[in-house]
Amino acid sequence: GTVKVQGITIKVPNPDKAYKIAKKLAKKYNLTVTRKGNTIKVE
Rank of each mutant, 00 (worst) to 15 (best):
R35K: 07
T9Y: 11
T39P: 01
V42H: 03
N38K: 05
K20A: 12
G37W: 02
Y19L: 06
Q6N: 13
N30M: 09
I40W: 07
N30V: 06
K23Q: 11
Y19M: 06
Y29F: 10
V42N: 05
A26H: 02
Q6E: 08
E43P: 03
N30P: 04
G37N: 05
V42K: 04
K41G: 03
T34N: 03
T9Q: 07
L31N: 02
K41V: 15
K4Y: 14
E43C: 15
K27F: 07
V42A: 03
I8R: 07
D16C: 14
P15F: 14
G7V: 10
I10Y: 08
T32Q: 09
G1S: 07
N14M: 11
K11N: 07
T2K: 10
T32R: 11
K17T: 09
I10N: 02
D16N: 10
V33R: 01
T32Y: 09
L25F: 08
N14P: 15
Q6W: 15
R35G: 02
D16Q: 08
R35N: 02
T2F: 14
K17C: 15
K11Y: 14
L31D: 00
Q6R: 14
E43D: 06
L25T: 00
E43Y: 14
K4N: 08
V3Q: 06
I10E: 01
V33K: 01
I40M: 03
N38I: 05
V33L: 07
I21G: 01
T9G: 04
G7L: 10
A22G: 04
A18P: 00
K11R: 13
V42T: 04
N14R: 06
I21Y: 11
V12K: 02
K11H: 13
L31G: 01
K28P: 01
Y29P: 00
P13S: 13
Y19E: 02
D16G: 08
V3N: 05
I21K: 02
K24L: 14
I10W: 05
K11G: 07
Y19T: 00
P13M: 13
I40C: 14
V5R: 06
A18W: 14
K17E: 10
K11P: 09
Q6F: 15
P13R: 13
P13Q: 11
K23V: 12
K23T: 09
K11T: 10
Y29W: 09
T2S: 07
V42S: 02
Q6S: 12
R35T: 04
K36Q: 12
K24Q: 11
N30Q: 08
K24P: 00
K28N: 05
Y29N: 01
Y29H: 04
L25E: 00
V42G: 01
K23A: 06
I10K: 03
N38W: 07
G37S: 04
K28G: 04
K11I: 11
I8Y: 07
V12Y: 05
P13D: 13
V3E: 04
T34M: 07
V3H: 05
K27W: 07
I40F: 10
L31E: 00
N30D: 04
P13Y: 10
N30C: 15
E43Q: 12
P15W: 14
P13G: 11
K24T: 08
V42W: 03
I40S: 02
T9F: 10
V12Q: 01
L25Y: 09
T9H: 07
N14Y: 08
V3T: 04
T34D: 01
G1W: 14
V42D: 00
V5A: 05
E43W: 14
D16S: 08
K11A: 10
P15M: 14
R35I: 07
N14V: 05
T9W: 12
G37A: 05
T2D: 05
Q6K: 13
A26I: 08
K24I: 14
Y19C: 11
N14T: 04
T9A: 08
K20G: 05
D16E: 09
K4S: 12
I40T: 01
D16P: 04
T32S: 10
K41Q: 10
K11D: 06
K28T: 03
L25D: 00
G37T: 01
P13T: 12
Y29T: 01
K27I: 10
T34P: 00
Y19S: 01
I40N: 03
G1P: 07
T39W: 11
I8D: 01
V5P: 04
D16Y: 11
Q6I: 12
A22V: 13
K36H: 11
N30Y: 09
A18C: 15
A22Q: 00
A22P: 01
T9L: 11
A26V: 07
P13V: 10
T9E: 08
N14I: 06
T34G: 03
I10D: 02
K17D: 08
N14D: 13
N38T: 06
I21D: 01
K4R: 10
V3P: 04
N14K: 02
P13W: 14
A22M: 14
I40K: 02
A18N: 00
T34A: 05
Y19V: 01
T9M: 10
Y19I: 04
K36E: 13
Y19G: 00
T9R: 07
G7S: 08
I8C: 15
T32D: 01
P15V: 15
V3S: 04
V42E: 01
K23S: 06
N38Y: 03
E43H: 11
V33F: 03
T39L: 11
N14G: 03
K11S: 12
K23C: 15
L31A: 04
K20I: 12
N38S: 07
V5K: 06
L25K: 01
N30H: 11
N30W: 11
K36V: 14
V12N: 02
K11C: 15
K27A: 10
K28Y: 14
R35F: 05
A26N: 00
Y19Q: 00
A26L: 10
N38P: 03
G7M: 08
K20C: 14
V33P: 00
K4M: 14
A26Q: 04
K36F: 11
R35A: 03
I21W: 14
K17G: 04
V42M: 05
G1Q: 06
T9N: 06
V42L: 12
T39E: 11
L25C: 14
I10Q: 02
P15N: 05
V5Y: 15
Y29Q: 00
